[in-house]
Each structure stands twice: as C-alpha cells, then as structure tokens.
Amino acid sequence: MTQTIDMFALALDFYPDGAVGSAEHRMTTDDGGWQVATFHVETDADVHADHWEVHPAAEEAVCCLAGGGVRMYFRPEEPGGEEEMVRLPAGRAVIVPRGRWHRLELDGPSDIMSITLRRGSRQEGR
C-alpha cells in the first residue's frame, strides 16, 4: 500500500542506488543519501540563528516556500571581513556553495526547504 509522507515531520532521503526513503530530520548525521527537508519555522531559534553550519560534501539549496521570508548569512571568507546577507522572500531559493559557513534568520514565520548531502556537515556557535 502506498503511504503519504508528512514533509514537515520527516525528511526524504535519496540514495545512490536510486532508493528513496523517509527519516527524521537530521542536521549533521549522514546515512549516504541526499536529504530533502521542509520546516515550518516561527522564530530565529527554529532556524538555529545562533549557529553557523557548513556542508563540505555538497552544495545546499535553501528555499523559502511560503511566509514572511528568511535572511541567509554567509560567514566572511577572510578574517575581519563582513558577513554577506541574501534575502529569500517566499518562492525564492539560494544555493550555498560547498564548504561555505552559513546561517539563517527570519523576517517572519515561514515554510522552508533544504536539499543537501549531509556527509561531514557541522555546526558551531556564533
């Protein structure tokens, strides 16, 4: 029997052998596949605004599907540099380069989606 998947409760995992499965959202744990995860976020705490995140194994697509929008911040690549900020209103996406530290802040409650290969992903406090 075919079952539906609540995309706000579970993520979709796409594996190299062509299989697709569903699992809990993971930020840094890797099981070998690409993860598509959606989130309903209402506060900066929901997007871990106090943490930087990096994905060394692949680029990441971050999409604002609906809501007030988000701001994506990129850590300076050189010491003393300025953070780069990109606004994502509803319906917009940004591709985070492989290995680039980044974080999110909200402009308002939103539904967001991320797509990446989690292998080696890390977080660290701001």
Rank of each mutant, 00 (worst) to 15 (best):
P109Q: 02
Q3C: 10
H25C: 08
T4R: 14
V96E: 06
R87L: 12
R100I: 08
P16S: 09
G125L: 14
W52K: 07
D111A: 09
A45M: 03
T4H: 13
H40D: 13
G68M: 01
A61V: 15
A58I: 07
E42R: 07
G91C: 05
H55E: 12
E59D: 11
W34P: 09
G69I: 02
R26E: 05
S22A: 13
E77W: 14
V96Q: 02
A58Q: 08
E84K: 10
M1E: 05
V62K: 00
R98D: 10
D30F: 12
L12Q: 08
L104N: 03
M7A: 14
S121V: 06
R87D: 15
D17W: 01
E77M: 14
V70L: 06
S114W: 15
T29C: 10
G68C: 01
G125C: 10
M7S: 12
A11K: 08
F39S: 07
E82D: 09
I112N: 05
D50I: 05
Q123H: 13
G21F: 03
A66R: 07
V94C: 13
G99C: 09
A23Y: 12
E42F: 05
T4Q: 13
H55T: 14
H102N: 05
R26H: 08
M113F: 04
F74M: 11
H48L: 14
E84V: 12
P56H: 01
G125Q: 13
Q123N: 11
H40F: 11
P79C: 06
E82Y: 04
I115Q: 09
V96H: 04
E124W: 05
V54M: 05
